[in-house]
Amino acid sequence: MNNTLSKAIIILVSVFLVTCTNSCRVKFVPDFDSELYSKIETTSKAVDRFYLLMLETTSAKDNERAYSNFSKQYVEIEVELNSLLLQNKIRPLNENSTRICEIILQTWNKYKEEHKEDNSISDGLIKINQTYMQDLFFALQVSEKAKEILINQPK
């Protein structure tokens, strides 16, 4: 009788331990989101296209690069960046990617304000701004792609 009781207690404790480990899986980052990754790529391409077209189709002469000629595109891209930030912000455990998005938005707005202030932009500054924005997007892509490490982890 005593032997049966102790076995029952051991089984109950073991079941409890297994249940605990099942519910005690650790989670430090959200799962990889392929849709969000595509959105990062699309927005990164839009920024790249914006600078490359500005460089190829306009010149700093004859006021071709006046801010007003680009204000609409600046706003369109800002809308995309805001949306990207929001999508990252609402995901739990995603503070690192969210911070990268905030930096991207902050930098984009800074470059927009500089363009507005100077009411023109040189070829050199276009190339530099394009490089800085692409490198920031690269960091964001890395942060999302890193979550792929978690695919096939024990459930």
Binding site: T21, C24, R25, V26, K27, F28, V29, N96, S97, R99, I100, I103, I104, Y132, D135, L136, A139, L140, V142, S143, A146, K147, I149, L150, Q153, P154
Partner: peptide, 25 residues
Amino acid sequence: LLEAELNAMAVISKAIAQKAANAAI
């Protein structure tokens, strides 16, 4: 930019730590 890169590295580290901890569990 450095802050952004360090944040990206933090995600890699956290993902590896998560995978390792869950494999041990």
